[in-house]
């Protein structure tokens, strides 16, 4: 048995070479007719206005933050799931294996509930709710 990671590295190389190879082929095949007009970005046929790098909806950011928290939590769940069954089979009590994870998930759920209630995952807020929030 070889080291599996060498094989994965090999696949990564192949995975890189295939698209690069296609690019090279295309480079050989395709024509190049530079012209100013067709380089403008597409805005349904209109002349592009303004800059693209504008401020966008804050909700994207809230979602990203939530993700960071919950994604990291999966990192900590992974090892637990792996040992869970063998721990049980080796006679460790159910409470001892399950309870810590219940506490962990419980804390996360409290966090999720809080984020939910505070509108972190709510895409559109009604103007009335906004006003109420500003008022306090």
């Amino acid at each position: 048995m070889g080291n599996p990671w060498i094989a994965i590295g090999a696949l990564a190389l192949v995975g890189l070479l295939i698209p690069v190879g296609m690019m090279v082929i295309s480079k050989l095949l395709r024509p190049s007719v530079p012209e100013q007009g067709k380089r403008s970005t597409y805005e349904s046929g209109e002349v592009p206005t303004g800059d693209t790098r504008i401020r966008f909806n804050i909700q994207y950011y809230m979602v990203a933050l939530l993700f960071v928290i919950f994604d990291i939590e999966t990192v900590l769940i992974f090892p637990w799931t792996v040992i869970y069954r063998s721990a049980l089979e080796n006679g460790v009590g159910l409470t001892r294996v399950l309870a810590p994870m219940l506490v962990f998930v419980g804390i996360l759920v409290v966090g999720l509930g809080w984020a939910w209630r505070n509108g972190a995952v709510k895409w559109v807020r009604s103007p009335r709710a906004e006003k109420r929030k500003d008022a306090r």
């Binding site: 933050l65 994604d71 990291i72 990192v75």
Partner: peptide
Amino acid sequence: QVFTLFLMALAAAEVAIGIGIIL
């Protein structure tokens, strides 16, 4: 290795706070 997992989690939490402050 276990500590590394914690480190990852903490790094993420730190980034979350950090991005908030930068915002």
